[in-house]
């Protein structure tokens, strides 16, 4: 399970959107077409290296902003507009990671040997970028960097926090909850962000 990394709240990636995410200094992107399936790809078009997160979704396809190269859900290139009559060779493909959604979060894996985690769907709370090392953030939350999730009792309910390392000094926290006051949970996590960042800056 440690192989799977939660990188966003599912709520923040609705149909038709692209989203850039930094995962352990790698640039990845999430997009979701009309079929509702979240895709996680390397943020790079194989043609000229353009970041695909700047592209646009139409139907079930992602289009690169630079030359309009169009990719299907299977990451294969469907169309090269400069050559409208060309049947695109199947070797032209974006670099897709294994992706799944569970517990209200989008997860990725670059080595999906283990099955993805199975979690109950909780209510999305918030994603926070915290300018502090994951080790510090996890310690403050009573979690471990060996696990992708932290369970936190909160005001009569539970918070389930996913996290990923953006880089050595930045942690992304993806909070979901059950039975918890969402506004109070959000305020609590923002206060935590502030104290961790003050500590990191000191």
């Amino acid at each position: 399970m440690a192989d799977w990394i939660p990188i966003a709240l599912s709520r923040d990636v609705p149909v038709g959107i692209t989203r850039a995410v930094i995962v352990d200094t790698r640039e990845v992107m999430i997009w979701r077409g009309e079929d509702g399936v979240a895709q996680v790809w390397e943020d790079r078009c194989p043609h000229r290296g353009m970041r695909l997160s700047l592209g646009f979704v139409r139907g079930n396809a992602l289009n690169c902003l630079y030359h309009g190269w169009q990719y299907g859900a299977g990451a294969n290139c469907l169309r090269i507009p400069a050559h409208p009559d060309l049947t695109v060779p199947p070797t032209i493909r974006a670099n897709a990671y294994a992706a799944t959604e569970t517990g209200g979060m989008v997860w990725m894996s670059s080595d999906s040997a283990d099955p993805p985690p199975l979690l109950p769907a909780l209510t999305p709370v918030i994603t926070l970028a915290i300018e502090a090392a994951p080790e510090r953030v996890l310690a403050a939350l009573g979690g471990s960097t060996a696990e992708p999730l932290i369970g936190l009792p909160f005001a009569g309910g539970t918070l389930q926090l996913g996290w990923h390392r953006a880089h050595a000094a930045k942690t992304m926290l993806h909070a979901t909850g059950a039975g918890a006051d969402i506004a109070a949970a959000t305020a609590h996590l923002r206060a935590l962000r502030q104290s961790l960042e003050q500590e990191a800056a000191a």
Partner: peptide, 21 residues
């Protein structure tokens, strides 16, 4: 906006790094 979002930022000359048509 395109130029600043190409990866890598340096021009690759190694065959196979990009896909010309």
């Amino acid at each position: 906006i395109v130029l600043e979002n190409q990866r890598p930022s340096l021009l690759p000359l190694q065959p196979g790094r990009e896909t010309p048509t």
